[in-house]
Design a protein around this nucleic acid. Structure first.
Lengths: 228, 228
DNA sequence: AAGCATCAGATTGTCGACAATAATAAGAAA
DNA sequence: TTTCTTATTATTGTCGACAATCTGATGCTT
């Protein structure tokens, strides 16, 4: 829904979707929690009808898992889940890069470059605040995905998979030297796209995502061994 | 839902989902039709609550398009839509092949081969009946997709994209020599997987899908020029 | 004491009705 | 006659209540 979230009328189901989704992604509702419809309805002050609509969409982006007559649980983060997710993400964002190199206008490319410069400057000011890095990164990837001009690809990546990706990143964090390296990798990717070199952009994106995966993987391993 | 459709309890929303989905895929409810909730509720003899649940899932697999406060329409088939869809499908089923070559057990491979032989024999009897070809093809692809063992990939391909793929194929048909050729291509793909040659399986699958796309594309072009 | 059946409590699935919004038709002004 | 306004109608979004199902505890049997 991210792509179409601000078009047209906004309904109560849309509002509560954004609220619950944010709560799950940021860990306010912890991973693995049982979802109680009556409780959430009270908490967000609405009836169960729009709430269930929101839950259906949360299931769609793999943030919750429902079993008929038994209710829903917030998804748990795991190494296998991370690997499956990023395996797919590498492939799809690689494809997005090839298509973006073909379809993005010079205008759009210039906008992404401006965006990167802007992110770099705000990052220098806000050194260490991982939220800005997170937001900037999502923004960059989002632009490239849109640049593919393939509606199904855009839908899958930005409306379905990306909230789960963000959940892994927000809850397990981006640490150390990766934060600054990511900027350079973004620059290299947009340069390849600007040169209409789809193959290179694809390769660079895959490596970029693989590096990000290794980073999160380590966090997961550390966390798993420290109190397991 | 295809992967989990027969597990657990079956609800009224599940039943009507299957009914409406079939009606749309097979063209009983024509492409582009406006969906009226009260009408469908009467027609399938249930209340609007489970119907709306079903509509939400139909939107998820791109069979209908909803706009807030304005209702839903059955999706229209178009050349651009077909190209975007198959572009993604090539990539994802290619990936599925590489993963299947890595993860499928000998047992599973043997089962797929038995399936192909069985399809071939029933096809010889039912020469010309495209429905059996359709069912057999879907079955083959479904097995390979499952063989990837990547839950997100399985979900996207078989629960989201495949009903739209089937809609294109059922409504625009598979004609001429492709029907028999597809069998050989399936054989070659499972052979590559059995040899654990993921790269070859990937390549063959992409060509297989590209050929299928060209076939449907021609039908669409003919149809578009004949009475446009 | 362990395991199974039964029952109470809570939760999900479904229903019919109401409120809010959009589409349509009728009428007035140019 | 055309176009804008307005009113009517129908549709979607939301609500509270009921029915069906699952969960957990209690008591009984072996």
């Amino acid at each position: 829904m991210l792509a179409t979230e601000f078009k047209e009328a906004i309904t109560a189901a849309d509002r509560v979707l954004v609220q619950i989704r944010t709560a799950i992604v940021e860990g306010e509702i912890p991973a693995g929690t049982k979802i109680s419809e009556p409780e959430l309805a009270r908490r967000y002050d609405l009836s169960r009808a729009p709430l269930r609509e929101a839950l259906a969409r949360l299931e769609r982006c793999h943030l919750i898992e429902r079993t008929p007559n038994a209710g829903a649980r917030v998804v748990k983060l795991s190494i296998e889940g991370l690997r499956s997710l990023y395996q797919l993400r590498e492939e799809l964002e690689g494809l997005a890069c090839r298509l973006a190199a073909e379809h993005m206008t010079e205008q759009e490319i210039a906008e992404v470059r401006a965006l990167l410069d802007q992110h770099l400057s705000t990052q220098r000011v806000r050194e260490g605040e991982s939220y800005y890095q997170e937001a900037g990164d999502v923004d960059f990837h989002y632009r490239v995905i849109l640049g593919s001009k393939n509606p199904y690809l855009i839908n899958i990546l930005s409306d379905e998979l990306y909230f789960l990706v963000r959940m892994y990143r927000v809850q397990l964090g981006m640490n150390g030297p990766r934060v600054s390296r990511a900027f350079d990798e973004h620059k290299a990717i947009i340069n390849a796209i600007a040169n209409r070199d789809g193959e290179l952009a694809d390769l660079l994106m895959r490596r970029h995502i693989a590096a990000s995966k290794r980073n999160i993987e380590q966090q997961l391993l550390q966390q798993g061994t420290s109190h397991g």
